[in-house]
């Protein structure tokens, strides 16, 4: 092998870069961490849609709500069981989930997601 020093340095740098997630996570020591969003006590046992759907697609629902509310004046969301809800983040979602830092933020922080909701909406939290 020619230029041994340079080649080995290059390979080591390459391996360090590719394996960044492995050593970074090992150093940070939070590999086993899984977010545990807390359902507030004030929340009932039902959401506006099934929990499975809300877990993966709540952003679609909120997006559709916003567009319908702002552009077409649609105010009412009818849940699968027939219950009517107001299409409102603050008045409907946050009324039950009154703990943004323990509910919304847990998963969003875990995934590095920065939702743009709070650019406009005020954060309503229990005890404020």
């Amino acid at each position: 092998m020619y230029d041994k020093g340079k080649i080995i340095t290059g390979i080591v740098v390459f391996l360090l870069l590719v394996l960044f997630p492995v050593w970074y996570s090992a150093l940070a020591g939070r590999t086993g961490h899984v977010p545990d969003p807390v359902i507030s006590k004030s929340a009932g046992d039902r959401c506006v849609e099934p929990a499975e759907y809300m877990r993966s697609s709540h952003m679609d629902l909120l997006d559709a709500w916003r567009d319908d509310y702002v552009r077409h004046g649609g105010r009412a969301h009818v849940a699968p069981d027939g219950t009517r809800y107001e299409k409102s983040l603050v008045n409907t979602c946050l009324r039950c989930h009154d703990n943004k830092s323990e509910f919304c933020d847990r998963c969003h922080d875990y995934l590095g997601a920065k939702p743009i909701c709070w650019d406009c909406h005020v954060v309503v939290e229990r005890g404020r």
């Binding site: 997630p21 492995v22 996570s25 090992a26 590999t31 086993g32 961490h33 899984v34 977010p35 877990r55 993966s56 697609s57 679609d60 998963c107 875990y110 995934l111």
Partner: peptide
């Protein structure tokens, strides 16, 4: 499509910590 991306990350983190 929508998939449960918390599970996606849990899968990724599990792989790189060998658990």
């Amino acid at each position: 499509s929508r998939t449960d991306i918390v599970a996606v990350k849990a899968l990724g983190m599990g792989l790189l910590s060998f658990h």
